[in-house]
């Protein structure tokens, strides 16, 4: 019996085994590469930026001197932006998702809308900036305002929100719709009282993740002309504004080392904000899983 296993070409097998082990290590190494890169990124930013992470950063306006510079106007600008975008993109995105999942007839036009949305999700963000420049800034005459920025960013995140909301709505069991209809509910009553409450936390997860992407976006806002030097807080929708990523870019573009470190401090603030939003999204997701 022993011979049965020994007769095989042992050299060939051990060679293949060694091969397998080497590749396994290579694959593991590749996987670790991503983790190492992320760690290097975080370490670089924290070591560069931790020294300047003081209250001045939050209370001062940008200045020609790095030591006196802060990002108050950028932080406030980003928050205003968020407050404008969030309701707008929520209503438009969830509305579109409800239409597509609950109301749309299954015809070519609906398929076209669906294809269009997935195509839009792949359009580079800078192209949305060009659209915003032509439509909101020029055609609508909104100039380089907070409103132009918020509308542009809304269009940018809309496809992501629609797709995420559609998935959330599709995950609501049919039985829950049937239960509502069987009690004499109309379509809208069923959607608003049964389908939406069942899917709202998953929808919110998608919305928050999309908004967190928007908060980190730089390019489209540069194109529509969000100013790089803003030493005041916007007082109306039509004021010029700046946001955190643009302020950070402005600092990175300076040759002096002090501004580079300031940029790193700004990045820490931006990343903390993103972490908070992502944690909120994950918590909502966990809550949602209990509901299904």
């Amino acid at each position: 019996m022993n011979n049965l296993f020994q007769d095989a070409n042992r050299q060939q097998i051990s060679g293949r085994r060694r091969n397998d082990l080497i590749w396994r290590i290579l694959f593991l190494g590749a996987t670790l590469f991503g983790i190492v890169a992320l760690s290097a990124l975080i370490i670089t930013i924290v070591t560069d930026g931790i020294a300047r992470l003081n209250p001045d950063l939050f209370t001062n306006y940008p200045s020609r001197r790095a030591s006196a510079s802060g990002m108050k106007s950028a932080i406030v600008g980003s928050l205003y932006m968020l407050c404008l975008m969030a309701p707008l993109s929520f209503v438009l995105g969830v509305g579109a998702a409800i239409y597509l999942e609950e109301y749309a007839p299954k015809n070519r036009f609906t398929r076209l809308i669906q294809l269009n949305i997935s195509t839009l999700a792949g359009v580079p963000s800078i192209v949305y900036g060009i659209l915003g420049l032509a439509i909101f800034v020029r055609t609508f005459g909104l100039e380089r305002s907070l409103l132009s920025g918020a509308l542009t960013m809304t269009l940018l995140v809309l496809p992501i929100i629609i797709v995420a909301s559609q998935e959330a709505i599709r995950a609501v069991p049919r039985a829950r719709r049937d239960a509502s209809f069987a009690l004499g509910a109309t379509k809208w009553q069923t959607v608003s009282r049964s389908v939406l409450p069942s899917s709202i936390s998953a929808i919110m997860t998608g919305v928050i993740l999309a908004l967190s992407r928007a908060i980190g976006e730089t390019a489209p806002l540069i194109i529509i002309g969000a100013a790089t030097y803003v030493a005041f807080l916007p007082e109306s929708l039509f004021d010029t504004f700046t946001v955190m990523p643009i302020q950070i870019y402005n600092w990175i573009a300076r040759p002096q080392e002090a501004f580079q470190d300031l940029a790193a401090s700004g990045i820490i603030v931006l990343m903390i904000m993103l972490v908070i939003m992502n944690v909120a999204a994950i918590m909502l997701r966990n809550k949602y899983q209990k509901n299904i």
């Binding site: 579109a96 239409y99 949305i117 192209v127 032509a134 439509i135 109309t186 959607v191 608003s192």
Partner: peptide
């Protein structure tokens, strides 16, 4: 109910924003 008459229209308008976006991008 009024909601059942107007909501489908409003929701359709929301969905058409994405189509308008594409048209806007291509046109500009």
């Amino acid at each position: 109910s009024i909601a059942d008459k107007i909501m489908p229209v409003l929701l359709f308008l929301c969905a058409s924003v994405s189509v308008l976006t594409t048209i806007g991008i291509v046109y500009t």
